[in-house]
Design a protein around this nucleic acid. Structure first.
Lengths: 123, 123
DNA sequence: GTAAGTACGCACATGTTTGTTAGTGCGGAA
DNA sequence: TTCCGCACTAACAAACATGTGCGTACTTAC
């Protein structure tokens, strides 16, 4: 007879199934429409803003800036701004970010490999 | 001098970085707010509608039904309806769905394990 | 008799995300 | 000289995601 963990236990250790858990928010950030793609591109190495904009097809400057801010806020991306003209800003994955990026890339790789099957399943 | 792959090549093999690629849409479904949680719960085994509703804290019936439809449409979830009263409907992961679920669960596990660090990083 | 559970569908309202456009200040290319 | 590139930000508008409340047809429990 093991007792099921209490709500506060679940929140402390991070339980995505609990609505009030902050892990929900983090997961939302990491799995966001653009965040996934940005993490994948950043896994190749440091990139600057406009390079990211070109690599991530379809992202607007607004969404790119906003998503980068979220990732930076969560400590997954480091922003380094060089005070030169024209402006030069570098974005790099933190160690934490590298781990997250590896996970989302594996997921994206799987999707890419299985798109044909999935599309076929829609008959 | 290898030529970079053409757009049509990238679309055929599934390239999330290309805006027109259907893998983008599939990725959106799989990483959707509720889809992630539903996949994780379904990984434990077949579940019925109301059981899912109870396990996935905070989901509304509308969103649950809609998300299940998307996942079914993509061939990740199988729906079996028993014609009895009261209604009884079972949801199960397909082999394809099991693979997807494994990936998202690993990502969610990582997030859960690292929430404290991430929250701390927001200082 | 009344309420709750079952698995949803529909209409409406709200909230959140995303896009669009315009602007910044300066240097280098045409 | 006129335009582009850089790395954004602000304001506004549109699109989409999501929640709420109601209805279904029947059974079991209270």
């Amino acid at each position: 007879m093991t007792q099921p963990p209490s709500l506060s236990d679940r929140l402390r250790r991070g339980d995505v199934l609990a609505a009030a858990c902050p892990s929900r928010e983090v997961l939302r950030h990491v799995t966001g429409r653009w965040a996934v793609l940005i993490l994948i591109v950043l896994e190749e190495g440091t990139q600057r803003f406009s390079a990211l904009r070109r690599r991530v097809d379809g992202v607007s400057e607004r969404m790119l800036a906003q998503t980068l801010k979220h990732l930076e806020h969560d400590g997954l991306v480091a922003r380094v701004s060089h005070a030169v003209v024209p402006p030069h800003v570098d974005y790099t994955l933190t160690p934490l970010g590298e781990e997250a990026a590896a996970h989302v890339r594996r997921l994206a790789d799987w999707v890419e490999a299985n798109v044909p099957q999935i599309v076929a399943a829609r008959g």
